[in-house]
Amino acid sequence: MQSLQKITSRFIPLRIENVDTDQIIPARFLKATTKDGFGKNLFRDWRYENDDEAKPKADFVLNQKQYAGEILVAAKNFGCGSSREHAAWSIQDYGFKVVVSSFFADIFKNNALNNGVLPVTVTDAFLQQIFAVSPNDTLTVDLAKQTITIDATGATEKFDINSYKKTCLLNGYDDIDYLLSMKEEIEAYEKVNHQ
């Protein structure tokens, strides 16, 4: 897994609530057997008219030239719906390293963390402050300090992440390595507990 420490970037504002994983990556793109190449289909049906890449929808933020960056900022309850990790893969493959929202769905949050994409939960008020600044402004997300800053105004907020996950992300460790190192403990557990 890619490590992530500190990032300063412009951002893409997606002022939509309850963005579900069917919008992030529609089901017809789940037929792949690898993790590669999902970025081109991120938000596919919001991005293109009639599934046609020659017809980008002008009203969608990913198609608007004034917006760019490695941070996606979305309204509350981002990533609800299915457990498809393809949603996290498509966000990562498109080039986002951080997703900011006032509220994340559970499974998406885990999936993002397991792929080196940092979900940053901010207050509603802070989210509105981000939406209010110019698209040329940048945000700085500092994982070690657990802070997100709107660089133009200096407004800063702390965000939560447990120290285990933080260490994993800072160093690019993944849970599977950790579990593989626990084999003996798991076998001991099975001896006592498993039917």
């Binding site: 299915s82 498809r84 499974i107 599977i176 579990l179």
Partner: peptide, 30 residues
């Protein structure tokens, strides 16, 4: 699959996981 919650009807703890977690269960049953 997120609708794994279905199995909770039997008094089980059942829930959906992502593919990284599927790999974790493959690797360590945890």
């Amino acid at each position: 699959d997120s609708h794994t919650s279905t199995h909770g009807a039997f008094g089980a703890i059942a829930f959906g996981i992502g593919t990284s977690e599927v790999e974790m269960v493959f690797a360590a049953q945890c």
